[in-house]
């Protein structure tokens, strides 16, 4: 099991738009809610009301600050969950076979009843996408909501990950990245979707759409403010003339 499948039929994953994410953390708690009540053990919280609370979350929002050479500094909200890597090192290090990649859709999952909680897969993941549950002591990670996306008990529109369904800004997109015609693949092509830490050789499936250029100075608009009058009287006169033409 621990070996990666020779072939995956589809590559389901997320495309995250860094130009649109407002950093609201909605996807964080929606994910926690769904995955607490569904796949595997509930996502626990230790010292939940105490001095050092530590909970398991499958999706977290970092905020980075970019200081460009020109123009003011920028803040980029940066959601991060498992990228369901093609070449997932977290899978091959797993001694028990608890970690595996599904051949039908490429989703990387942990079979919790096999997990010994050795933590090695989390060590092997460059992205911090795996967290050991502080209560259940098994490895937790994004399931790509595998129990939603095929769930016949949900209406068709709702067969998307909980984080995608809830994202108020529409910054999260879900689909098959092996299909070049899928909406997500098109977005990636149009917006120069990128991989995180490509040098780690993990070949992530999830892609990130970079922020669009900001604070551009456009001077083509200057003629728009050509004065028609410098004084109130001048303005009123101009207006009278203009209105008569209406």
């Amino acid at each position: 099991m621990t070996a990666l499948p020779n072939r995956v039929e589809r590559k389901l994953g997320l495309v995250i738009d860094l130009d649109t994410c407002v950093g609201c953390h909605a996807c964080v708690t929606a994910c926690k809610g769904w995955n607490t009540e569904n796949y595997g053990a509930p996502l626990g919280d230790a010292d939940a009301y105490g001095a050092d609370p530590v909970g398991a979350f499958l999706n977290r929002i970092h905020s980075f600050e970019v200081t460009p050479d020109e123009g003011p500094a920028q803040v980029v909200h940066f959601p991060k969950s498992c990228l369901h890597c093609d070449d997932a090192p977290c899978v091959t290090v797993c001694p028990t076979g608890a970690s595996y990649k599904r051949s039908e859709d490429g989703i990387v999952l942990v079979n919790e009843s096999d997990c010994i909680g050795c933590g090695l897969c989390a060590w092997a993941c460059p992205y911090g996408a795996r967290e050991q549950d502080p209560v259940e002591k098994v490895m937790k990670k994004c399931t790509l909501c595998v129990d939603r996306i095929y769930n016949d008990n949900l209406p068709e529109v709702d067969r998307v990950p909980a984080c995608v369904r809830t994202c108020p800004a529409g910054a999260r997109h879900f689909g098959d990245l092996s299909d070049p015609d899928s909406d997500v693949s098109r977005l990636v092509a149009e917006r120069d979707g990128m991989d995180l830490m490509p040098e780690q050789g993990t070949a992530p499936v999830n892609k990130y759409l970079p922020p669009r250029p900001k604070d551009a100075e456009l001077d083509i608009l200057a003629p728009l403010l050509e004065p028609v009058a410098e004084t109130p009287r001048g303005l009123l006169g101009w207006l009278d003339r203009a209105l008569e033409k209406l």
């Binding site: 994410c21 407002v22 950093g23 905020s63 003011p72 920028q74 803040v75 909200h77 900001k214 551009a216």
Partner: peptide, 14 residues
């Protein structure tokens, strides 16, 4: 302050 909505604004007037 440039967080949240202002972070994704195409232009920020601080």
């Amino acid at each position: 302050i440039r967080t949240g909505y202002n972070a994704i604004a195409d232009e920020w007037v601080g």
